[in-house]
Design a binder for these strands. Structure first.
Length: 451
DNA sequence: TTTTGAGTTGTTCGA
DNA sequence: GTCGAACAACTCAAA
């Protein structure tokens, strides 16, 4: 009787460099590939991530010769059922460190245990998993730079070889879910697509990444975030390729961005409540606006109709691609928090709903950094000026022209401040919904109210 | 325990 | 136009 192990895929939708797969293949003769459509994750995931996930699953299923078993329901019940049907006694997973994932996996582990089976956590989505890097005092790091110095020393692990696997013909599977209808244009999903993106980045962009990454009009970033989010590629594989290419400032800065992802995962693991609450207790008293007038401002921001071209270009890119350039994420976040005085959690929730790469740790802590409430937060006086940022980082105006067609005929520098044109902004483009100079002072005043 | 140097991404103002 | 200082005070991490 051949032994079967279950490999429960989650955010690790690839076959190469997959430690849980390596272990499963070593300990059993056949591996059953399972994905559980968890009802509790469908709503918060947002349509873009569900669509990308669907495409990842189709790609993975094709790579498995159609043997991916998909089931929907409560993981604690589904995983036990499938393991029973497969007559497996071990279920392998890549460890999940998010607040929900930790609780879910503990529950599944208990359910499996009660049925005489085991959950085996092998590997993680990170080069250096949460709770690995500690200060000399044994605490988790609260500041990025010292974290990064320690992280670098530990991040050298090589990718694991892909094992020969006999994939089990599963018990019955539901169809791989179809992608929800979507207005946004998503990147190609799946393991092969992830490696194509990495190749493109290394060939054309990595060497100049440290400069080009700040220009939203250039495609200067890797655009690997969604693939990393779903584990189509592991950061270990990325770093291995970076090392082949060699060094240089572009490579080094890009690697530090991978470290940011891991730093925030580490912080969220140690402080799971910070997905909702300010890291800095003092900031919980920060005054924010609410009510119908504020709701109207929030809606204008969400629709890309604030009258500030760079802010609107960013929000429209978010609608169009379910993704936003990092520089612009900071600008739109600062605008919501410091110009509109709206609580960062509202903006973060909208991002999580719309982003194809929405990662709870990076998203919430990125917002908190901007809001000044986070780990290693921006100092209170750092208020982004949407016009200055536009002139500095979208100097040519190409990014604005791409996403705000009403302004497509304008050239720089007029495009950065269309309300200053005689006759006002063209093409029905709105005038600014607030005065940045006024609201900046108000933001600083509110900060001053905190003890 | 105490001390010391440092802390992703900015803006404004005045010289 | 360019440049440096000021914008607070605090917490973190290591010595």
């Amino acid at each position: 009787m051949p032994r079967t192990a279950v490999l429960w895929f989650r955010r690790d939708l690839r076959l190469a460099d997959h430690p849980a797969l390596v272990d499963a293949a070593r300990r059993a003769d056949r591996v059953l590939a399972l994905f559980v459509l968890d009802d509790r994750l469908r709503r918060p995931a947002g349509a873009a991530r569900l669509a990308f996930l669907s495409a990842c699953l189709h790609s993975l299923d094709a790579d498995l010769g159609g043997r991916l078993v998909v089931r929907s329901g409560d993981p604690a019940a589904v995983v036990v059922d499938v393991a029973r049907e497969a007559e497996a006694n071990e279920v392998f997973v890549t460890e999940d460190f998010g607040p929900y994932g930790v609780a879910r996996d503990d529950q599944v582990e208990r359910a499996l245990g009660a049925a005489g089976m085991e959950l085996r956590r092998v590997g993680t989505p990170y080069l250096v998993p949460p709770a690995t890097v500690t200060t000399l005092a044994g605490e988790h790091y609260k500041v990025f730079t010292p974290y990064y110095r320690s992280w670098r020393d530990l991040a050298g692990e090589a990718p694991s070889p892909t094992p020969a696997v006999t994939w089990a013909e599963g018990p019955g599977s539901e169809p791989v879910p179809a992608a929800p209808l979507l207005d946004a244009h998503l990147p190609e999903a799946g393991e092969a697509a992830a490696h194509d993106r990495l190749d493109l980045f290394l060939d054309e962009r990595a060497a100049r990444y440290h400069e080009a990454r700040n220009d939203p009009g250039l495609d200067g970033t890797s655009r690997l975030s969604a693939h990393l989010k779903f584990g189509c590629i592991h950061p270990r594989q990325v770093v291995a390729r970076l090392q082949e290419v060699g060094g240089g400032p572009g490579i080094e800065v890009f690697r530090s961005e991978l470290a940011w992802r891991e730093f925030y995962a580490d912080v969220l693991f140690h402080r799971p409540e910070t997905a909702r609450e300010a890291v800095l207790p003092k900031m919980r008293a920060m005054r924010s606006d609410e009510g119908s007038a504020t709701d109207a401002l929030f809606a204008a921001w969400g629709a890309g109709k604030t009258g500030y071209p760079l802010v609107d270009a960013g929000m429209r890119q978010l609608a169009g691609e379910a993704w936003m350039h990092n520089r612009v994420r900071m600008v739109v976040a600062s605008f919501l928090v410091k110009d509109l005085h709206i609580d960062w959690t509202r903006g973060a929730a909208l991002f999580m709903d719309r982003l194809v790469d929405g990662d709870l740790a990076s998203n919430q802590h990125g917002w908190q950094w901007v809001a000044g409430s986070g780990t290693d937060a921006a100092p209170y006086f750092r208020v982004f000026n949407p016009v200055t940022q536009s002139r500095k980082f979208d100097r040519s105006g190409d990014y604005i022209r791409r996403w705000v067609p009403e302004l497509a005929e304008l050239s720089a520098p007029a495009i950065h401040e269309p309300w200053k044109l005689p006759g006002g902004p063209p093409g029905g483009y709105p005038s600014p919904i607030v005065d940045h100079g006024v609201e900046r002072v108000e933001a600083l005043r509110r900060y001053g109210e905190l003890s």
